[in-house]
Each structure stands twice: as C-alpha cells, then as structure tokens.
Design a protein around this nucleic acid. Structure first.
Lengths: 179, 179
DNA sequence: CCTGAAAAGTTGCGCTG
DNA sequence: CAGCGCAACTTTTCAGG
C-alpha cells in the first residue's frame, strides 16, 4: 500500500505529469480547499463533475497528499519555534532518532548534507519544553551534539506551492553551466 | 446574532482558550479535513450542527488559519529541499529580503537567534534553481553570506499538531529550574 | 446543544465531442 | 477518453425547542 517505512521523499507518489488544468486546480486548493466543486470548476473552466474527477485523480495519484486544517501555533500554545541541528555518530542510528516523532512538538525530521547530520523543526510551548526535548535527544544513542536556532519572528510560512518560477531574470554575473 | 456582545471581535488570533472538545476537533481536522460534520460530530461526541458551529468559531477566532490541500513536492517538480541560513548586515534590510517571498520556491522565512540572522526553507526543481535563488539572495542589499543545508531524506513532515506532550518522563539528570 | 426539515452540494450515469 | 447535463443521494445549514 502507500505506507512505507522508508523516508517520505524517495518513493513514487506521482506517476504521470500534470497538465495545465491540474496545476491550476492545485494552485486553487493549496490556497483554500473549502470551496465547492462548482466554484472550483468555474475557476479552472470545468463542470463540477469534471473538476471533481480531476481532484479524485490527483488524490489517487498522490499529487494531493491530503486535505487538512492549518492551525495557529499560538492557539494551541506552541509559540516557540526552533530548528535543531543534530550531529550523530554513524548513520545506522537514525531509527532510534525517529522515536522522537512521537512528540507532537516535532514537525519535521530531515537528514541533511552539510556539517550537520539531522535537522529538526520543533514547536514548543516554551523554552523549558524545548529543553526537555533536547534532553531526550541527548538520551538517544548516537546523538553527539545539537545546535538550536530559536525563531524570533516568522515572516513567511506556507505549504508547498505548485507554481514554478518562470524564467526569473538570471543575474548578470552568473554564467551558464555546462550541464 | 452571534458573538457581538463584546466590544472587540476582529483582530485577535486566539482570544479565549480552547476546551477539550475544541482540541479534539483540531486533532481530527489537522489530520483530515475532508470528513463530514456528521462524522466529525460522531468522533467528538457532538451533533452535526454543533460540530459545525464549533468549527466556524475556530475559523473566526483564527485558531484554524485555513483548510488547504497538501501537495506532493515531487508531483510539482520540486524534489530538492534546502534550508538556507542567511547572514545579513544590519537589521533594517529585512524588507528587501522579503522580496524573495515572490518566489513560490520559498516556503518559510524566519529571523533566528544564533549565528545566523535569517533562515529560509526553499524547495526547488534542481540544484540549478537553488543556485539561481542563492544568486538572487546575494543581490539583495544587506546579505553578507549564506550557508545551505540540502535535504537528503525527509523522515517526517507534518503541519502544526494541536497535541501537547503530557508530562513526558523527565530525564533523571535534569534538575528543576528556579523558574 | 439537540432534533428535524429546507437548501445546497456531491456524485453516479448516459450521452456528446 | 475526458467532459457535460441531469437526477438521486448526501451533506450542510437554518429553524424551533
């Protein structure tokens, strides 16, 4: 089925390409998924059943991973956002690290290239809760050290946008690469 | 009439506290907002109209910031995720930096404490597009340097979770702070 | 906040391009 | 094959208790 023990990023969610209408639909639904299929059809130039059929296809193909409510972090008492870089000893210890997914405060876990091994996005009620999370991290076998970046202000935060930048003016000092 | 009895009604994200049912509703909708109010009511122990009234209130209060479709990055040709730390000269130049919000590839912009000033989350089609974005960053007045962390694998990525960790076992070596 | 009924939206089906 | 119109069904939404 669609549940994999592997990372989210490396599989095969989307088989074939999306056409212009599909992209337009995604552009609308990424912004507001509460509209009726009648209105969605209007906005993309389709009848309600046709629009619905498209959306069902996008869901089945995995292009739409889900339709969810976005909640205000402050409303659920999580005003403190931080990015935590985690240095680990060896690579096989990631399963142990994954245990912290159980904490609802942890929103993202990535392995990254660069001088850190793992990068976490965590949202807590206060610095004390963040400290508790870091303490749990240090308990995890393989965790060597962490560096935390506490967010002071968030200027932009939005889900994956379907749009691609259509040929932004390339800086003059950038030469064309070979590949 | 609704809640017009109070003088102020407009601009506060989360005015009063959420009760247990509100939190349960958020917990359901954060996972799947496509269910009917009948089923939502069932899951939280409310009639369909009552559940709907709660959700409307959560929307008005700002606790629910929106209901959106989450799209698979690979389906929209953005398989490359990176976090970019940006060092800036001075603080007043942030408005200039905000211009890059125009790029759909930029998903988050935060100012952070630590050795970086700004932190961006960007999702591009390939390394070339990331390079173009970095080039634009360096064009921005005030930008001194950047460090990029390219994501190799994403193990967890989810929206804000309403749940709080209820008294996770505190590590033994952690002593209680004064405040 | 609940029960019930009117209004609106969804979705299956046969048909058309 | 994808989309459209129509009609049955479900859901949303507005009453009154």
């Amino acid at each position: 089925m669609d549940e994999e023990t592997d990372g989210i990023q490396q599989n095969k969610p989307a088989a074939r390409d999306l056409d212009a209408i599909d992209r337009k639909i995604l552009g609308v639904l990424v912004d507001d998924a509460t509209i009726s299929y009648a209105e969605l059809g209007d906005r993309v130039g389709l009848s309600p059943p046709a629009a619905h059929e498209r959306v069902k296809r996008l869901r089945r193909s995995g292009a739409i991973r889900g339709t969810v409510a976005l909640v205000d972090p402050k409303a659920v008492r999580k005003p403190l956002l931080a990015f935590v870089h985690v240095d680990t000893r060896g690579w096989g210890k990631t399963p142990e690290l994954m245990a912290i997914s159980e904490h609802p405060e942890v929103e993202e876990i990535h392995s990254v290239a660069g001088d850190s091994c793992m990068l976490l996005k965590v949202r807590t009620e206060d610095t004390r809760a963040l400290e508790g999370l870091l303490a749990r991290l240090y308990e995890t076998p393989g965790v060597v050290s962490t560096r935390s970046y506490v967010v002071l202000s968030t200027y932009l935060e939005r889900p994956v946008q379907p749009g691609n930048t259509k040929e932004w003016p390339t800086p003059r000092h950038m030469t064309k690469p070979l590949y």
